[in-house]
């Protein structure tokens, strides 16, 4: 491969999926991926990782109890102040 090797593609994979690579560099990566199953699979894995990370961050069962604690504290501090 004249352009990037697999290791270099991997190093730029986050920037690629985040759309942060300059046009020509992104094109080089895509040209490499067109002939490299390994890098195609890897970049797909990074996309899945990004989606799962986002999904794992949604909500938490502990929120309601924590919210009640904050509200209770504000109420008591409000009373102390007044």
């Amino acid at each position: 491969m004249l352009g990037l090797n697999c290791k270099q593609v991997v190093a730029r994979s986050s920037a690629l999926i985040d759309g942060e690579l300059p046009f020509w560099e992104a094109l080089q990566l895509r040209l490499h991926m067109a002939v490299c199953k390994g890098c195609t699979a890897f970049v797909h894995q990074m996309r899945v990782t990004r989606s799962l990370t986002l999904a794992a961050g949604q909500g938490s069962p502990d929120d309601d109890a924590a919210l009640a604690a904050v509200l209770a504290r504000l109420a008591s501090e409000g009373r102390d102040a007044g």
């Binding site: 090797n5 697999c6 290791k7 270099q8 991997v10 490299c36 199953k37 390994g38 890098c39 699979a41 890897f42 797909h44 894995q45 899945v48």
Partner: peptide, 16 residues
């Protein structure tokens, strides 16, 4: 450890 001396995959990553 995933790459050979030329920076190519030793084993192709899984397709998931």
């Amino acid at each position: 450890a995933a790459f050979d001396g030329r920076g190519h995959w030793k084993d192709t990553p899984a397709l998931w």
